[in-house]
Amino acid sequence: MKGKVTLIATAAMGLEAIVAQEVKELGYDDVTVENGKVTFTTDPTGIARTNLWLRTADRIKIKVGEFKATSFEELFEQTKALPWTDYLPENAEFPVIGRSVKSQLFSISDCQAIVKKAVVEKMKASYKKDWFDENGGFYRIEVALHKDIATLTIDTSGTSGLHKRGYRYLHNEAPLKETLAAAMIKLTNWHPDRPFVDPFCGSGTIAIEAAMIGQNIAPGFNREFAFEGWDWFEQNWFDSAMQEAEDLANYDQPLEIYGTDIDHRMVDLAINNAKEAGFPDLITFKQMQAKDLRSKKEYGVIVGNPPYGERMREKAEVEKLYKEVGATFREYLPTWSVYMITSHEKFELYYGKTATKKRKLYNGNIKTDLYQYWGPRPPKPKEDK
């Protein structure tokens, strides 16, 4: 595999534009954005670089082919015609998963079986063998049907999505995905020279992602990927991507990051997760109510994932909390920027202020809004004459 590959970075709904921006920042400009995915072309080194660097994407997949299929015969023949042996060695382990939306071929199990059979037939013809042991590298194939268009991909990331950074072994009951936390931070005006606070820190995800962004640490630096076990993926491609990540990390960047939570168990959890992430002393976690937040610093950023009040018995309590934090931030932190994500449709009413901007995001399957309150720009430092 020496030529160009087409990659698909999958994204949660609402994050596609952020993923596309990240892809462009890595130097790839042939970028197409669609619902749930960002498609671009690269040489094979891009497989390693995007897996290491994309903070807000779910997975990186190689696009093997795309075609219209309204019958099982079409699906079989066109799958078989694709260049599978460019990617799959004869000992490849290649399970097939599938999904179908608004398509005539709606039986996912049948589609998976047909794709598996078609790939095997292609390999039989190419490798002149009738049996394959599947004891080599892991190449998970996906057949995704949408409005009768079949897209065939191979997952480069592995069984764990890219949100699995390797630092969060324990978490609270309703954890925020690392990819969403990173996206929320990237939507702020935060710079590493300003203080950053998460007043509802839970297991520490937002604060840890902020530290990784602040020191420009590649989010995939401490995990493994499926492509590492592929015969054709040259070790030097991965080595150079890892070296680039090491060279670009700014471990000396001082940061002022705080996470607070009313539950001391969450604070302990966050401290342990920060240690796993390599930030034992960089982030300060403290048990505290959000309404008690104060700072002597004039400009800072608050990013929080407060309780939503999804259960009726919690609703009044949550609405009281929104009132309290709104009053606190306006009185004690009037020049700070505030970003809060919640599914509560009347958040602005209880918070006591209309957001500068709202952005629709999905926290798992929950439709939420990121309420953005922009503080004034800090004055530019005066130049020495």
Score class of each variant (00 low, 15 high):
A245T: 02
T354E: 15
R55M: 12
E246C: 10
K320A: 15
T335E: 12
T260G: 10
A245K: 00
A113T: 04
E317W: 10
T39H: 05
K286G: 11
N35P: 11
A270R: 00
K102L: 14
Y28V: 05
E256K: 15
I97S: 15
W190N: 05
E173H: 10
K286Y: 15
A182N: 03
N51Q: 06
I60S: 06
L15I: 02
L52D: 06
D369N: 15
N305Q: 03
D252V: 09
L162Y: 03
P334R: 03
Q253T: 12
G220N: 00
K68L: 14
R359Q: 11
P379V: 03
F76S: 02
M123F: 04
T368A: 10
C111S: 07
T153K: 02
A327N: 11
D43G: 14
D247F: 12
T335F: 12
G326K: 03
A316N: 11
R311I: 09
L15S: 05
L26P: 08
G3N: 09
D148A: 07
L370P: 04
P376G: 08
N250G: 09
D384K: 13
P195A: 09
L293A: 07
Y371R: 02
H163I: 06
Q235R: 12
A17F: 09
I217F: 09
G166V: 02
Y139S: 03
F67S: 00
E314P: 11
D110H: 15
W237G: 04
G352I: 07
D110Q: 15
P199Q: 05
S107D: 13
I141Q: 01
G278D: 05
D261A: 08
Y258H: 15
D43W: 09
P379Y: 04
N365E: 12
Y322C: 09
L370Q: 01
E256I: 13
R194N: 11
T41S: 13
K68F: 14
D268T: 09
R223F: 08
E319Q: 14
L152D: 01
A150W: 00
T56G: 08
Y258E: 12
K68I: 13
I149L: 10
G214L: 04
K63N: 11
A270L: 04
G3A: 10
R99L: 15
R140T: 13
K358G: 10
A92L: 02
Q78I: 01
M242K: 11
N273E: 05
K128M: 11
V318L: 08
F238Y: 11
L7W: 03
L15K: 00
S107Q: 12
T153E: 04
K128Q: 14
Y258P: 11
G375D: 05
L333A: 06
N135K: 13
Y339C: 10
A174V: 04
D369S: 14
